[in-house]
Simulated assay, not measured.
Amino acid sequence: MYSDFADFIRENQAELLEAWVREMKKQEDPKIASVATDEMYEETTREFIDLLVSKLDGTENQAEFHGKLKDFAEKIVLLGWPIHFITASIHNFALLTYKGMRGKELFFKREDNPEDDAYYRFEKWLASIYNKIVTAYAETWEKTVSQQRQALQELSAPLLPIFDNISVMPLVGTIDTDRARQIMESLLVGVVKHRSEVVLIDITGVPIVDTMVAHHIIQAAEAVRLVGSKPMLVGIRPEIAQTIVNLGINLEQLITTNTLQKGMERALALTNREIAQKEG
């Protein structure tokens, strides 16, 4: 049905490629320009053209085409090309193809039957390709974000044994409900695994402590207490202390310090130890 489009694209690939890269570079994001070389543009656009041609002339079945389309979508997601840049690129390529075919009189007068009309077929082809690529891009993006979120959660709440029976959990970044659950699980598993008598929850790297965050931290500390360990909250900066007071959050059941160093000194004292300077 679209073999004439495929033939035109294949026969004029070099010309279309050059014009398309030129148009893409006019609309590119500065972030893309900083990492995308001319070779990368050419390779990616050539791959896209080959993908279109294989779809248009029917040389591949649907499963093969869908597989290649997913691979292509994953590639452009990993390259960091935003969706608005992709959609603009598809539109530019379609416009270049349309102008080229009209210039070579490959578009004829309108037919009585809409399905035979070149304009109708062109719009139908463009809509089909556009929808498939945007859908594949969205699916790949969601999958990538989900994998990154999972990896971040796995790495963002480690319980680190520092001394015998003393462990530290450094928290960095925003704490939401999902991450709070991960923190709780890591704490409970780690306390038992490392036989921690004292656990220091370090919030130095947490930018905002509001009612919800404080609630999650108190819950985590209470869970640590229930499994027989002493929780400590360290890294309380002046602005966070003021926020906690203004919110009326009760931390009386928690040992608190403003630095990890002071917290470690308290933890050693609680386990009947201290750091002494070696003489000589």
Rank of each mutant, 00 (worst) to 15 (best):
K70Q: 15
D71Q: 14
G235Y: 01
V191N: 00
D202A: 06
Q62H: 08
E197G: 04
G100C: 06
G263M: 03
G67F: 15
K143F: 07
V53G: 03
T259C: 05
K99E: 14
V53D: 09
L51N: 09
E15R: 15
E60K: 13
T45Q: 13
Y120S: 07
E142L: 12
L152S: 08
I249P: 01
R225V: 07
I76H: 07
D38M: 09
V209I: 14
G190R: 01
E43D: 11
V134R: 03
L226S: 12
V198H: 01
K25N: 10
P158D: 10
K230H: 13
E111T: 05
Q153T: 07
A138R: 15
V192C: 08
H215D: 06
E123I: 11
K68M: 11
L17S: 04
E222I: 07
E39W: 11
V213L: 10
Q261Y: 12
K26W: 11
R22P: 02
V192N: 08
Y137P: 00
R110L: 10
E47V: 05
K193A: 14
R266T: 05
A33P: 00
V192H: 11
L17Q: 05
R195L: 13
T97S: 06
I240R: 02
D178M: 12
A269P: 03
L270Q: 08
L56I: 05
E11L: 14
R179D: 09
A6V: 06
A241G: 06
M1N: 05
E15H: 09
P231Q: 06
A223E: 09
N165H: 05
T243E: 11
A269D: 13
W141Q: 12
K124H: 11
I244E: 00
V224E: 02
I166A: 01
E115A: 11
I244S: 00
I83D: 04
V227M: 14
F107T: 05
G103K: 11
V206L: 11
P170G: 13
D71M: 14
A220I: 02
E197P: 00
D112P: 00
A214Q: 01
V245K: 03
L268K: 00
T211C: 00
N258Y: 04
F8S: 02
A6N: 06
A73F: 12
G103I: 03
N131Q: 12
R46D: 09
R121H: 07
R225C: 05
K99N: 13
I175R: 02
L270K: 07
L260G: 03
Q182N: 10
K75Q: 10
I208E: 10
F72D: 02
S34P: 01
V227E: 10
E265Q: 15
R22C: 08
A138Q: 15
P82I: 04
T177P: 00
S156L: 13
V191S: 02
Y137R: 00
W81K: 00
M212V: 04
S186H: 06
K25L: 07
Y41E: 04
G280M: 12
Q147H: 11
F48K: 03
